[in-house]
Design a protein around this nucleic acid. Structure first.
Lengths: 206, 206
DNA sequence: ACCTGAACACCGTTCAAGT
DNA sequence: ACCTGAACACCGTTCAAGT
């Protein structure tokens, strides 16, 4: 066929890439296979990601670590974050969240974990990438407020935030890493373990 | 040249692979490049890793997560762990370690972290691999003793072990992930943060 | 602007062959 | 047992061209 008005977009490409990753693993994602899935020649992808697969990986990493339905977080550095994406702010009105600090952090941690688990096939992309997204700034602010409210001061605030972030990420990596073990815990027990450690960490942190 | 008595071995291959990974990243490791570095045709590697690159990756993951100078931990599943590798047991005499449980866990955590940082280029290999090594059993026993000594009982012992493992792994991933940030903390501060979170976790766990 | 199609250098792996 | 060398299918990316 001569011409293909595929209506390609960065978001479509990323989502299709995540399908392939979920099905065949990260190693199973090739530009040609991705093109096939999008019903387009592989080279069409380069129009949306001119820097190639590495740029696509960055965008996937940003997408995976950003909360669900806001669509623009996965645009990467060379594109100014469009400041007009506050449709469906949903829980950015969390500034007026009056729940205790530990409840807010626990909610964040559980949501972060769920998202990482949902895209566990892309986990290894996160080992060397920490893309700047609108969401990462919001998370930073959320943690700063919560730990300050908990009584921490000075450098301890960022240290506690780092520890919480590390624990959540590590817990998911640990779970995925051992998911093929013959004595791997079921989903419920995995969640129990996550919560157990999370509570311990928050208790010890303040 | 007709014949090459290269004296190839699994360990030499793994170490050379880790050099390449350190220098050019995981994506820069190809069988052909690895062969060049070993001064051998790429296909010679298949004699030592008949299942190919995937098997090599597993062996690297085992090597990276096993303590330093014992040489046989990276043999993978299809090779029975040779039971004659107790030369230089060094700290396996830890059974008669009389230091407090938290000191022993802290020492383990710091050593584990150091090793992961030393091979940080291979970190993403650990996201989907948890190879069985002699060392993983030893670690499990060490943690079980320590947390039992700390007063934990039943399922909480393994939950605490998981939490500690998760935190250490996550802390390294978090550090490496952000090492390219313009405001990344220096090495000393990174260690301070690790210790801060580790102490908090151990305090909260018991 | 958006996509195609041929081309190039490189890759993992198989296989028959050499010693 | 250990390594070579040619071959095959596949890959990422460039580039000129089409609309």
């Amino acid at each position: 066929m001569s011409r293909n008005y595929a209506g390609l977009s960065r978001e479509r490409i990323i989502i299709e890439a995540l399908h392939i990753i979920a099905g065949r693993g990260l190693g199973g994602l090739s530009m040609r296979r991705l093109g096939d899935a999008l019903e387009v020649e592989a080279m069409a992808i380069y129009h949306h990601f001119p820097l190639g697969k590495e740029q696509l990986f960055n965008a996937i990493a940003a997408y995976v670590t950003s909360p669900a339905p806001t669509g623009a977080a996965f645009d990467d550095e060379d594109e100014e974050a469009s400041d007009s994406t506050e449709e469906e702010t949903e829980r950015v009105e969390e500034e007026l969240d009056t729940r205790p600090w530990d409840v807010r952090l626990t909610m964040w941690a559980e949501a972060y974990r769920e998202r990482l688990l949902a895209y566990s096939g892309a986990l290894s992309l996160l080992a060397h990438r920490a893309p700047h997204t609108p969401n990462s700034a919001a998370t930073h602010a959320l943690m700063h407020r919560a730990f300050t409210e908990a009584g921490l001061r000075g450098d301890d605030v960022v240290r506690a935030s780092d520890a919480l972030h590390s624990y959540c990420l590590g817990s998911v990596v640990h779970q995925v890493r051992h998911s093929a073990d013959e004595d791997a815990p079921d989903e419920e027990e995995s969640t129990t373990r996550f919560t157990f450690g999370l509570r311990a960490l928050l208790r010890g942190l303040v």
